[in-house]
């Protein structure tokens, strides 16, 4: 055991360098794409070469072309920008949002977090006013009074009503999971077109329930562990216990889930493109490239290039995820 330790460390270092190297290369491609001397620009169809395999005679497409005649190499390199900017960004945001919401729901459950009634009144009044229901001005006044009461009175004001955090989060995840994307899109159809920021928001909105449920489930266990109880017994504020002790441990399952969520986000992004609210086809993306294999099932190069890039990214993230993070609960 001991004798093999240095070798193990060396291998781990090598693996880590490889993983970091790959991610750095993707980031570099994303940044430097426009400066590279490419034979073909992205989103330019070469109508003489449709769905040509890599290195075919008479074509200068090194990685072949897709069914619309776009150069796979150019799409891959420029697609790295989209992958880094949108897919990876959405994965990070969705995971963070999911971890926070799921962690809070699992920690406080339905009765742990109590809010004084003036705050409830403020929220109700604001909602009433926002919907322009009859008597909106009166509701606005009510909301103002409630807000003032919350700020001035603070914790001293009488009854505190619990916020059903757990039920809310569970309900939201169930709803988002059950509503098919197409129905959501129908509802969104009026608010087209989507900007990259809007697309990011849609991706995050549909992707956060997964991590949220994972973290919630883990949190249920963590809160039952002695070290959390001990921290509470010491009289530490609940928020601090949650943030410092409980959340880091509850987030452990995300180390595996995060890299995998990248794959599903790429798939989602190509679904959204199909529905007409995703990235337009002139924006190169790995997900879209992978999707073009649908019409050309024998074109292995359309799967190999983006699929390989995706696989290496997942493996690199997975490797880094396993190497870091808090140790086991003691």
């Amino acid at each position: 055991m001991k004798a093999s330790a240095p070798i193990g460390i060396a291998r781990a270092r090598g693996g880590r360098a490889l993983a970091l190297g790959w991610l750095a290369a993707v980031a570099a491609l994303a940044a430097l794409g426009p400066l590279l001397p490419l034979a073909y620009a992205p989103a330019q169809p070469d109508l003489a070469h449709l769905a040509t395999p890599p290195l075919a005679a008479g074509s200068a497409h090194w990685l072949g072309t897709d069914p619309s005649g776009r150069d796979v190499l150019a799409e891959m390199i420029f697609g790295a920008r989209t992958a880094v900017g949108i897919s990876l960004g959405a994965a990070v945001l969705a995971t963070a949002l999911g971890a926070l919401l799921g962690g809070a729901a699992g920690f406080w459950r339905n009765h742990g977090w109590r809010v004084p009634w003036p705050a409830w009144a403020a929220a109700l009044g604001a909602g009433w006013w926002a919907l322009a229901l009859p008597g909106a001005p009166a509701a606005l006044v009510g909301a103002g009074l409630g807000l003032a009461g919350t700020l001035l009175g603070g914790p001293r004001w009488g009854r505190r009503w619990p916020v059903p955090l757990d039920a809310g989060v569970l309900g939201a995840t169930a709803l988002l999971g059950a509503v098919p994307r197409l129905v959501l899109v129908v509802a969104l159809a009026g608010t087209l077109p989507l900007t990259p920021g809007g697309l990011l928001a849609v991706l995050v909105l549909t992707a956060w329930p997964g991590p949220a449920r994972l973290v919630r489930a883990a949190m249920l266990r963590v809160t039952a562990q002695p070290f959390v109880a001990a921290a509470r017994a010491l009289g530490l504020p609940a928020g601090r216990v949650w943030w410092r002790q409980a959340l880091p441990h509850a987030c452990l399952p995300l180390r595996t889930a995060f890299p995998l969520s990248l794959a599903s986000l790429l798939a989602l992004e190509s679904t959204l493109s199909f529905l007409g609210i995703g990235l337009p086809p002139e924006v190169p993306s790995w997900g879209h490239l992978l999707g073009t294999a649908r019409t050309e099932p024998t074109a292995w190069w359309l799967v190999a290039a983006p699929g390989g890039a995706l696989l290496f990214t997942i493996l690199a993230l997975q490797y880094l995820g396993r190497a870091r993070g808090p140790g086991p609960a003691k």
């Binding site: 890299p259 995998l260 794959a263 798939a267 992978l290 999707g291 294999a293 649908r294 799967v303 699929g307 995706l310 696989l311 997942i314 493996l315 997975q318």
Partner: peptide, 14 residues
């Protein structure tokens, strides 16, 4: 593990 990750990276239609 790598094979599993590879399988995950493949879209279902592929």
């Amino acid at each position: 593990l790598a094979a599993l990750a590879g399988l995950q990276a493949l879209p279902l239609f592929v």
